[in-house]
Simulated assay, not measured.
Amino acid sequence: MVKTAMIGFGGIAQSHKNAHLQFEAEGREKLVAVCDIDPEQVKRRIKINLEDAPEVCGGHFNVYTDYEEMLRSEDVDLVDICVPSFLHAKIATEMLERGYNVLSEKPMALNSADCETMLAAYEKAKKNGKYLMIGQCLHFYPEYEYLKACIGDGRFGKVTSAVFQRLSGIPMWSWQNWYWDYEKAGGVITDMQIHDLDMARWLFGEPEWVECRASSKYTKFDNSHVTLGYDFPVTCLGDWTLRGVKFNMSFRFGFEKASVILDGGKLTVYPADGSAAYEPDYRHPHTGIAGEVGYLLDLIENGGENVKNTPVSAYNTIRLVEAIRESAENGGRRVVPTFVDEN
């Protein structure tokens, strides 16, 4: 059984926690501890008193406010990192160097140089059978896996167009308001739109060029329109300026023989021959972050190679993000990104 500890217990960490507890219920994992620097946040999230930390939360896991103390006190196989983006690279690299398996939230880092430092630590850890996975969780969402299958087997012919859209209210919920600091979050491009940019790479390969027009209403680059250079139109829209709007992700894919649309959480196929639209059979029990965690648990338990969501792929996504930010800084000028070989 894999023993897991979490560093960071804010918003996205709750989805990670739920995934870990799901696999704990299945007898595959034990969430032994969580840590967050802000005791008030932990109180809000799990409603316990931390005066005598660590304490047992609901019989499930111990709670700490110092991850050094947590790691000294607990027997841990996997460290799940859900801290603010500007801390991902530092903590993930440290955990790899200390001999842990690591799951780290996206983005891998805020720049490619920090990614390279993390990858160097991973190459050493890998020799001892350790794994690193970055939380590009759309690889495990069934809607996007369905798209991957459609492209792979050609059931609807070739892709003719693709539009990704990701919308949110203003991110005012972060610890010390770090989302509003471009140097700590990277704007909507690096924090939110990165999911769709990563998906474009996963589905279509590397784009030849990028163009980005971005605006700054409340924070730097909080609205972004990206065009990616493929043989057909591919657009990614990201906006977190929409006060009062609940988070929404959607896509519209045109194929030669059908359109495939995700809207309002529902996936629908619209055949080009005019026959009735339908919802395909695409769901499975472990989706999104749970699918990501389950895949990593399989690797830790059984060995093998991570072929679905590799650290080098996450690094190349950051290289793409850097090219897009360069385009945005220059009023939408076309930029040619560079990538490293993933083989």
Score class of each variant (00 low, 15 high):
Met1Val: 14
Met1Gly: 01
Val2Cys: 00
Ala5Pro: 04
Ile7Trp: 02
Ser15Pro: 00
Leu21Trp: 04
Arg28Gly: 09
Leu31Met: 04
Arg45Ile: 00
Ala53His: 01
Glu55Trp: 06
Asp66Lys: 04
Arg72Phe: 08
Glu74His: 10
Asp77Gly: 12
Cys82Gly: 08
Val83Lys: 14
Ser85Lys: 15
Lys90Arg: 13
Ile91Arg: 05
Ile91Gly: 10
Glu97Pro: 14
Arg98Met: 07
Gly99Thr: 14
Lys106Pro: 05
Pro107Asp: 04
Pro107Ile: 11
Leu110Asn: 09
Leu119Asn: 13
Lys124Arg: 13
Asn128His: 13
His139Tyr: 08
Tyr146Ala: 00
Phe164Trp: 05
Trp173Asn: 07
Ser174Val: 02
Ser174His: 04
Trp175Ala: 06
Trp178Asn: 10
Ile189Ser: 02
Met192Asp: 03
Trp202Ala: 15
Trp209Phe: 08
Glu211Gly: 02
Lys217His: 09
Lys220Thr: 15
Asn223Phe: 02
Asn223Lys: 07
Asp231Thr: 10
Gly238Ile: 07
Trp240Gln: 09
Phe251Pro: 11
Ala258Phe: 00
Ala258Leu: 00
Val260Thr: 08
Gly264Phe: 06
Gly264Gln: 07
Lys266Gly: 12
Leu267Val: 07
Thr268Ile: 03
Tyr270Lys: 06
Glu279Tyr: 03
Val293His: 11
Leu297Glu: 01
Leu299Asn: 12
Glu301Thr: 15
Asn302Glu: 08
Asn302Gly: 08
Asn309Tyr: 01
Thr310Asn: 10
Tyr315Met: 13
Asn316Gln: 10
Ile318Ser: 15
Val321Arg: 15
Val321Met: 13
Glu322Asp: 14
Ser327Val: 02
Gly332Pro: 11
Arg334Ala: 15
Val335Gln: 09
Pro337Glu: 07
Asp341Gln: 01
Asn343Tyr: 09
